[in-house]
Simulated assay, not measured.
Amino acid sequence: MGKEGLQVIHAGYCKTGTKSVNAMLTQLGYKVCDAPEAIYRHWEDWERIANGEKPNEVLQKLFGAGNPDEYTACVDLPHFAFWEILLKQFPDAKVILAIRDEDKWANSVVKHLAVEREQFKEMGWWRLHSGIYKWVFNHSSRAVGLYMDWIRPLSIGAESRNFYGENMDLYRLKYRQHNQYVMNNCPKDKLLIWRIEDGWEPICKFLGKPVPDGPLPHCNRLGGVIKDLENSVDYQAMVRKQTISIVLRLAIIAATGYGWFKGLVQPHLQVEESMPFNWKMLAAGVAFLFTMRHL
């Protein structure tokens, strides 16, 4: 398994056991693309999809047969919102719709949002101070901005103006609408409606897999998604790149300031007749802009 392309589409809403489904599919031998991979590894692809730049070709690149990451399944955002488009692109795939008691789901959403606001500060920085955030965090802000302005609204719709509140009536409506739409429009032979208490057997029968020994994996309890994100190799790689960029920019600013103070770098452009431009200042500016874009 690994070269066949997309075989399983998890259409279940966020907070319906997506991390548990990820663990189950992984245990069954699938290579799963989850939200962290979509946001921090493939954000440029999803930005092209968001902008309508040959989106079907991008989806084939991400999930088609022989895709570079060998994905055969997808869960969580933004994938569940694209289940119908993905199924058209990959008609041999099967769709799993995980559902949950609405009140329990709503309580879980409220707790999850509280954990995000407390621990995942980048989200608040983007929503409330995006101008400064984009300048300081020039690399990570691209992925976070796409998530906050396009991917995240696929789930919860328009977010509260102050970032710290939620209108659960609207969230509940979107949850019901999504589930009902999947039930009404997905071909019955392609769809499994599943609750986490149903256990292994329905999913294994639906996918033609033997039932594994041992209990069902339970993941992402009590806001563990934040810890999972911190352990993501893609998130760690972006943090490292962002840290290097910030350190280099601070070093350039410090070196330029020191040189200016010591008279090694003059504030004006014309230094002498034989050197009409201050190449040191120009080099510092070019290096600074390069780190903003590439490092």
Score class of each variant (00 low, 15 high):
residue 1 M to K: 10
residue 5 G to A: 08
residue 6 L to V: 11
residue 6 L to P: 10
residue 11 A to G: 01
residue 13 Y to T: 09
residue 13 Y to D: 00
residue 16 T to A: 07
residue 30 Y to P: 05
residue 31 K to L: 01
residue 39 I to F: 07
residue 41 R to E: 11
residue 42 H to K: 05
residue 44 E to M: 08
residue 44 E to L: 08
residue 46 W to F: 15
residue 52 G to D: 01
residue 62 L to V: 02
residue 64 G to K: 04
residue 67 N to M: 02
residue 68 P to G: 02
residue 68 P to K: 09
residue 72 T to V: 10
residue 74 C to I: 09
residue 79 H to P: 00
residue 79 H to D: 03
residue 79 H to T: 05
residue 95 V to Y: 01
residue 96 I to H: 05
residue 97 L to E: 07
residue 105 W to H: 03
residue 106 A to G: 00
residue 108 S to G: 04
residue 115 V to R: 14
residue 117 R to H: 13
residue 119 Q to H: 04
residue 119 Q to V: 05
residue 120 F to Y: 13
residue 128 L to A: 13
residue 129 H to R: 07
residue 131 G to N: 11
residue 133 Y to K: 04
residue 133 Y to H: 09
residue 135 W to T: 12
residue 137 F to R: 11
residue 138 N to K: 08
residue 140 S to L: 12
residue 144 V to W: 06
residue 149 D to V: 02
residue 156 I to E: 07
residue 158 A to I: 13
residue 159 E to Q: 13
residue 161 R to H: 12
residue 163 F to D: 14
residue 165 G to A: 14
residue 172 R to A: 05
residue 174 K to S: 00
residue 179 N to R: 02
residue 193 I to R: 03
residue 195 R to D: 01
residue 214 G to T: 07
residue 214 G to I: 03
residue 221 R to T: 14
residue 227 K to R: 03
residue 227 K to E: 03
residue 228 D to S: 06
residue 229 L to Q: 00
residue 231 N to G: 04
residue 231 N to S: 12
residue 231 N to W: 04
residue 233 V to A: 10
residue 237 A to T: 07
residue 241 K to S: 13
residue 242 Q to K: 03
residue 253 I to V: 12
residue 257 G to E: 08
residue 257 G to N: 10
residue 259 G to C: 12
residue 262 K to A: 14
residue 263 G to E: 07
residue 267 P to I: 15
residue 267 P to C: 12
residue 270 Q to D: 02
residue 270 Q to L: 03
residue 273 E to R: 13
residue 275 M to R: 14
residue 288 F to S: 00
